[in-house]
């Protein structure tokens, strides 16, 4: 089994899907000759040509809207937003259009588009190259939002997103692109969208998170294991709609739950996770539900001092886990 980086898993999934189905094509800014600003589409222009790896004008609403039109026609567009921070001009196309096309047409039409975007901080990206934007989209039925944490999940979930007959937002943590490596089978596998995944078994506390937070929690769990605290770690993988069954099961297992996101705290994905636990697990809880998140400031500052203060990291996660274990 090959070991590859998170971003190589993105490229691999794209390449395999384009080889498998000639209706799959990529559109976005700088995705062609350059292979993307992060090089997620590296080599695909040479392999599949300019028409299927289409450099578009700098126009996010058109990237989404043209993709939606092509999807309604019957193609399988994979649109790239250069940074998740720049997706907002396409918000209307995603929320008013893509997410509602099946519903509003009473199942006559569908818009099977995948929209990929790098998100997340800790890369000196400042306010507009660091944001987590998932919560802005995560109350729109009709839309699916996938945020994988490992190269294995990236490949299986990106393939699933491209094959899905509904619109999928696929957010990739940009710091994970080269930081996170892992084994990825060379065979053609897909993972189910809408299913969370247990990344570590434990009986003392439960951590529910996604994206880079999964790795921080796993690192922290190893340290805590030396102190005799065994953490159970659930990776949401799909943040909308949430895997309620897996959340309830993970929360019930230990009765102590820490929820982690690098997004601003108020109104984030983990608030909804907390509500699911509160509704379903009250008598199984041995401690209040705890949340670790970014502060409620508009976005992540540039200066390293302030960026570090904003970002979650393994130490912050470890401390929060220990506090909960000792409750």
């Amino acid at each position: 089994m090959a070991v590859m980086s998170y971003i190589q898993a993105v490229t691999t999934a794209l390449r395999e899907e384009m080889q498998r189905d000639d209706k799959v094509f990529i559109l976005g800014e700088d995705v062609g000759k350059k292979g993307g600003v992060f090089r997620a589409t590296d080599g695909l222009y040479d392999e599949f040509g300019a028409a299927r790896v289409l450099d578009t004008p700098l126009s996010e609403s058109a990237i989404a809207g043209v993709g939606i039109g092509a999807a309604m026609y019957g193609l399988r567009p994979v649109a790239e937003m250069q940074f998740a921070d720049f997706i907002l001009p396409a918000f209307n196309q995603i929320i008013s259009e893509a997410a509602k096309i099946r519903y509003r047409s009473n199942n006559d039409w569908q818009a099977p588009i995948t929209i990929r975007a790098p998100y997340g901080g800790g890369v000196h990206g400042a306010l507009y190259h660091s944001q987590s934007v998932e919560a802005m989209f995560a109350n729109q039925p009709g839309l699916k939002i996938v945020m994988p944490s490992t190269p294995y999940d990236v490949k299986g979930l990106l393939k699933a997103a491209i094959r899905d007959n509904d619109p999928v937002l696929f957010f990739e943590h940009k710091r994970a692109y080269r930081l996170i490596k892992g084994e990825v089978p060379s065979d053609d596998y897909v993972l189910p969208i809408g299913k969370a995944d247990v990344k570590r078994e434990g009986d003392d506390i439960t951590v529910i998170t996604y994206g880079l937070g999964v790795h921080f929690a796993l690192q922290a769990a190893e340290k805590l294991a030396e102190e005799g605290i065994e953490a159970h770690i659930l990776d949401l993988r799909t943040v909308y709609p949430l895997d309620q069954e897996a959340i309830i099961e993970a929360a019930t297992k230990t009765g102590k739950v820490l929820l982690v996101t690098e997004d601003n705290k108020e109104g984030s994905i983990i608030g909804e996770v907390a509500a699911i636990i509160a509704e379903n697990c009250l008598f199984d809880l041995d401690a209040p539900i705890k949340r670790l998140a970014g502060p409620d400031v508009p976005a992540m500052p540039y200066a390293p001092t302030m960026e570090k203060y904003f970002m979650i990291n393994p130490e912050k996660v470890e401390n929060a886990m220990r506090d909960l274990a000792e409750f």
Binding site: S61, G65, V66, G69, Y73
Partner: peptide, 16 residues
């Protein structure tokens, strides 16, 4: 919003 959709349909037709 329908204008980019029509453009997308035209793009698809050209590709196909």
């Amino acid at each position: 919003t329908q204008l980019p959709h029509a453009v997308g349909v035209a793009l698809a037709g050209k590709m196909e």
